[in-house]
Design a protein around this nucleic acid. Structure first.
Lengths: 144, 144
DNA sequence: TGCATATCGTTGCAATTGCAACGAAGTCAA
DNA sequence: TTGACTTCGTTGCAATTGCAACGATATGCA
């Protein structure tokens, strides 16, 4: 009995690690741009494609629809993104970066990539590390 | 520009993985015992030692003091733990499992260990996996 | 065409969370 | 012993979050 150490338990370690990494990363853009993690994820995803619907971000980034919606509201009010009703399907809301938003993303992304690089530099076998995480993540896909 | 895929970005992958693992794990005890993740962490830590103060859990498990405090309240009201004022230092609150709480922990822990085992079975190199996570976690310790 | 059903995004509301402030208790030095 | 300072745990309150329901739009079948 009681041969259980929480701090040696993988689920706890993962939660703790993810939390610290997330906080560390958000420190890179929080002060300067005053955006939250949810907002960062939205603009980061927007950097990949021109026009993206709320629905697509919800599906891809696994954020709640309402979370995307509210993040988009704040981002629009700050002038980082633009919201427009879809042309073919008028239920959709197309999100796209404004020049200001594009500038912000272009500033944050190098910092984010550098952060990831430093993170991986702390462990031996960087490629194995990313592969491992990806592998674990994939194996959890079913449990949606 | 825009050569950035959020779903290939390690911090996001970690956050996503941790979230899924946490949800999967909590499914093991949520329905049966109606306890939250925070409450599970408290009783799990209590399983290691007889009497533990709120302060110690706060420091070890990295939960906010108030979070521990509220979790302890709920756990006590359900009869899983007992709260008593410290003898030498009367500011401290000593938490300890009741027999009912002990029984619950003894039921959950094997399930939790099995869950961890299945998780690791999904990747090659189980030991390397745990070592990698631990290594990353340790390297983040400074950024408290 | 018309009606039932599904989907998209938003919002109201309740539950949860985090912070800061608080009272209680302890420590230390004058 | 007293008084300033620290630490512990709790709580009030505001911000955030998640869910469910909603209006608007689209789709599919009779």
């Amino acid at each position: 009995m009681a041969d259980f150490r929480l701090d040696d338990f993988l689920p706890w370690q993962l939660a703790e690690l993810a939390d610290r990494v997330s906080r560390g990363l958000s420190g890179l853009y929080r002060d300067k741009f005053r955006i939250s993690v949810a907002e960062w994820r939205v603009v980061a995803h927007l950097s990949q494609a021109e026009k993206v619907s709320v629905r697509e971000i919800h599906a891809r980034v696994r954020m709640g629809k309402w979370q995307v919606s509210r993040a988009a509201q704040r981002l629009e009010s700050r002038g980082y993104i633009r919201k427009r009703t879809g042309r073919t399907d008028r239920r959709l809301v197309e999100l796209s970066l404004t020049p200001k938003g594009r500038a912000m993303v272009n500033e944050i992304i190098p910092l984010a990539l550098e952060y990831e690089k430093e993170l991986l530099a702390r462990v031996s076998g960087k490629r194995e590390a990313k592969d491992l995480i990806r592998s674990l993540l994939r194996s959890m896909e079913a449990s949606n």
